[in-house]
């Protein structure tokens, strides 16, 4: 019984993710593409829930749907992308090819690592307590954890720097 429900729910999330991704890539309307992206992120949050990690699912919602998507949309609104604008024309094939290449790049980068160090599969997912997660992040993986924050800081500084240049001109 439980098994069937899990499979059904997994299929549902998969549909949401793939449908959203398709909408995001192929929609001529920027805002509809954006809605597709939000659907994909929501589906991914559902997959986290299915894997017994509600913390990740809620963080996905809080950070990606609640903050990053909203900021992306804010930027979209400032561009005044009305229907029937330039971006609603069909994109040239070379653009599709290049974006396909960019989309496959992470796969090429991550696949060797995943294949060389496979994580042992479990019959049933187990929930990790939040305190344990925090301990692992701040004791075992302190250096990578801090490195990630440095990357984010550099990205933020870079963003501010770029915007500053443009305003002075």
């Amino acid at each position: 019984m439980m098994e069937i429900i899990t499979r059904l729910v997994f299929g549902l999330y998969l549909l949401v993710i793939l449908g959203g991704a398709g909408l995001a890539v192929f929609s001529a309307n920027l805002v509809r593409a954006f809605v597709g992206m939000v659907a994909t992120l929501l589906g991914a949050a559902g997959l986290y829930l299915l894997m017994q990690s509600p913390f990740l699912a809620f963080m996905q919602l809080l950070i990606y749907v609640g903050a990053i998507c909203v900021l992306i949309f804010f930027a979209l609104m400032l561009t005044n992308a009305y229907q029937g604008g330039d971006e609603s024309a069909p994109a040239p094939l070379s653009k599709f090819a290049r974006s396909l290449l960019a989309g496959l790049a992470p796969l090429v980068l991550l696949l060797p690592t995943v294949l060389l160090h496979p994580v042992a599969a479990k019959e049933k997912p187990e929930a990790t307590p939040l305190a344990e997660l925090g301990k692992v992040l701040l004791e075992e993986y302190t250096v990578p954890f801090e490195l990630i924050s440095i990357i984010l800081l550099i990205a933020m500084a870079g963003g501010v720097f770029l915007a500053w240049e443009r305003r002075n001109r």
Binding site: A57, M59, L61, L62, V65, G66, A67, C69, F73
Partner: peptide
């Protein structure tokens, strides 16, 4: 608490 904070962001959207 996290559940409430996470889902209340959808309203902004």
């Amino acid at each position: 608490l996290l559940l409430i904070l996470a889902f209340s962001g959808i309203n902004v959207l």
